[in-house]
Nucleic acid binder design. Structure first.
Length: 289
DNA sequence: AACCCTCACAACCGCAGCACC
DNA sequence: GGGTGCTGCGGTTGTGAGGGT
């Protein structure tokens, strides 16, 4: 969807107004009314110019000095989610869907953290994706998105299936895996090695933040880790080893070394994993036990 | 054509954490 | 230590588009 169209349409529809009162945490100067609703092109321009001149941060003073009748929070949100040059628009690609699913299984609703591994994507966008697509499917399957049933569904069915859709299957596997040790996360292959998360992880006390840039945490042994448990050189599938291969699908992780997760182009997003075929397949798997 | 429903998205809200005084 | 203000995060809401009937 072209979000700019949405924006323009909202504007033309007259959405937005001057708020009579400021947000509780956002005191306003006497006599100043704050605008709410969609941003106008003029406001966008003012904000862009101001940030380009003075940089990000200090959003409240920015809003005042730039002459924007917006809250500091509003300016920050508009900049981060929409105006920032690095913001990437367009559909969530299959590769990105895969990353989201896997990181969410690891971190839950920590959208900003997940967004760090998706260049150009905002936490808001990822959150919207999760709510509109994933939660909807959990609802269709009549199970909670956080239930073990749904987690297993993603782990053993959707993710391998998504992998299959992303790359297809090569005629032959590489002669030698790049590396494949028990101490290296397969996920390191999945993330473009040129990518560095945009935020500083070193300032966080979260143990999951103690990771090298360009890699996904690898502490498989931690108690809550149900994340990277696929055999490194084997096939994806259920615990008994038959799993997915019974469907003729060989999903060796190294098949996907060449996926470009930082690509700003491409259009693999057209085909979404959440289609009728996959729903049917998953329901079969679940009913089979 | 009109209505209804779902989807996708931007924007808003409340809260927690942090820094500063 | 307490108060205040700012920032960032996650949850939620409101809106138009688009498809189906």
């Amino acid at each position: 969807m072209d979000t700019s169209n949405v924006h323009d349409q909202m504007k033309s529809a007259g959405y937005g107004s001057l708020a009579a009162a400021a947000a509780p945490d956002q005191p306003i100067e006497e006599g100043l009314c704050l605008r709410t609703g969609p941003w106008t092109a003029e406001e966008d321009s003012i904000l862009i110019d101001y940030v380009n001149l003075h940089g990000e941060g200090r959003w409240n003073s920015l809003a005042r000095h730039a002459g924007l009748k917006r809250t500091g929070k509003g300016c920050r949100l508009r900049w981060l989610n929409y105006l920032r040059p690095s913001v990437r628009r367009g559909n969530i690609t299959l590769q990105e869907q895969l990353i989201i699913l896997r990181l969410h299984s690891r971190w839950g609703n920590r959208w900003s953290k997940i967004a760090e591994y998706l260049p150009g994507r905002t936490d808001n966008e990822i959150k919207n994706y999760w709510r509109t697509r994933v939660q909807k499917q959990a609802k269709q399957l009549k199970c909670d998105v956080n239930s073990k049933q749904f987690q297993d569904a993603m782990r053993y069915v959707w993710i391998p299936r998504l992998i299959e859709r992303i790359g297809g299957l090569p005629e032959s596997l590489p002669d030698q895996p790049r590396t494949c040790t028990t101490t290296t996360s397969e996920f390191e292959y999945w993330v473009d090695t040129n990518f560095v998360p945009k935020t500083s992880a070193s300032t966080s006390s979260d143990s999951y933040d103690q990771v090298q840039a360009c890699s996904i945490p690898t502490d498989r042994t931690s108690s809550g880790d149900e994340f990277m448990t696929y055999p490194c050189s084997g096939q994806y599938g259920s615990e008994n080893g038959s799993g997915y291969s019974q469907n003729g699908i060989n999903s060796d992780i190294h098949d996907f070394e060449q996926i470009d997760y930082c690509s700003t182009g491409g259009d693999t997003s057209v085909e979404n994993m959440w289609n009728e075929e996959n729903i049917w397949f998953l329901q079969q798997q679940l009913s089979d036990g």
